[in-house]
Amino acid sequence: MAYSEKVLDHFKNPKNVGTLDKNKKNVGTGLVGAPECGDVMRLQIEVDEESGVIKDAKFKTFGCGSAIASSSLATEWLIGKSLEDAGKIDNMDIVEELALPPVKIHCSVLAEDAIKGAIQDYKEKNGLTA
């Protein structure tokens, strides 16, 4: 299977690889997937507490090229978004942007879940959950 140019680009030059301090109150971490399934995605957001805007995002992913590209793209999209807008990112947006084939759609689902997980973690830490 051939990968799209965009997947290859994110794979070769992944954006925002790294680790934020998960103990900081304004950092939310989403960890999804499992090693035995062949993909684990960790996505972190750092939120500006005054404005509620995501000022930084980092990822690390164990997985195939599409999983890495999906998480790299997700971090790019997250930076600068409000938590509310971030929560609206849909996996199909990722599929479209990266031209993922049907067999790789689960990579985008994983990225959406990681985003939601990171937001949830941030909200729980800050007593923002309803």
């Binding site: 992944p14 035995e36 684990v40 690390k60 992913t61 164990f62």
Partner: peptide, 20 residues
Amino acid sequence: LSPIWEMYKEGVDLTKIVWD
């Protein structure tokens, strides 16, 4: 790029994590 490699390097016991 691997989060589990990072955890392994930090000494996290990966078998104890409840994976989703």
